[in-house]
Design a protein around this nucleic acid. Sequence first.
DNA 1: TACACTAATTATAACGATTATAATGTAAGA
DNA 2: TCTTACATTATAATCGTTATAATTAGTGTA
Lengths: 147, 147
Amino acid sequence: MSEVHLKDALETLKSTGVRITPQRHAILEFMIHSTTHPTADDIYRALERTFPNMSVATVYNNLRVFKSAGLVKELTYGDSSSRFDFVTNDHYHVICNDCGKIVDFHYPGLDEVEHLASHVTGFQVDYHRLEIYGTCQQCLGKTAQAQ
Amino acid sequence: MSEVHLKDALETLKSTGVRITPQRHAILEFMIHSTTHPTADDIYRALERTFPNMSVATVYNNLRVFKSAGLVKELTYGDSSSRFDFVTNDHYHVICNDCGKIVDFHYPGLDEVEHLASHVTGFQVDYHRLEIYGTCQQCLGKTAQAQ
DNA sequence: TACACTAATTATAACGATTATAATGTAAGA
DNA sequence: TCTTACATTATAATCGTTATAATTAGTGTA
């Protein structure tokens, strides 16, 4: 399963003309197998055995590349440094109030909301449910024409 | 209405033994009347006319004081600096799956989710709905006793 | 294979937001 | 008034992140 993710990710990169370097391969692999949401420094330290000369800048640069390719999300919780999350298939729904169309919306990490809710209310929090409502592009177009 | 908020906030501070200094008063007042989510620097620059000698550290220190008093929330979006938001009565619900109890949960700023959803899906996003599910303390206690 | 061109990596410096420190000022209680 | 604790100020330090310049490596072409 994570092999599939890795293969897909490499495909995505290749298709947008991004070279697959050993460092990029390793960063992706680490992120896919990581159960936590690692910081840039986590990734750097985890890979410095394999790449003793790797620079922190390489990690940041490549995380940016992965982000703009949609492979990775940056999570800014309260702490000082960003965490990065490989995008899997967890998603929310965006719902059109006019025609009822539902579009998947990938977004990681509302963990903080759950943590805070648990902290504040004393609940043991199990999960949450988020839906986003609005008007889809087609319905927006129709309304604009009608006016 | 904002006068009520300010009065309440000052009450809250006083009741926890925090002194009301002119700087604190001004920071709170600015945040309450601010329609945006100002950064620490925004606040600093807005008040430097009134307090020409005020230090940035004072802003940060007091934002921390307000945060721990529950008056202010820190919002970490993607950008480099945190934004701060005076806590009003917008809230979500935390729902117990055992007894159905609903507890209010104050949490600001899922604006970013809406923005991103709009950006990704092309929807005009109007609002969202978030609910958090789990088990309340009483029900947790009952389950623990039963075992 | 050799060459040229472009992208990627590295090392390091710079930046900027936030925090820590030390000194000074200010309010409240005995 | 004196004392003590808390606030503020000014400034230095910290730390995550980004920019820069030099070097290295990959890719396409003759």
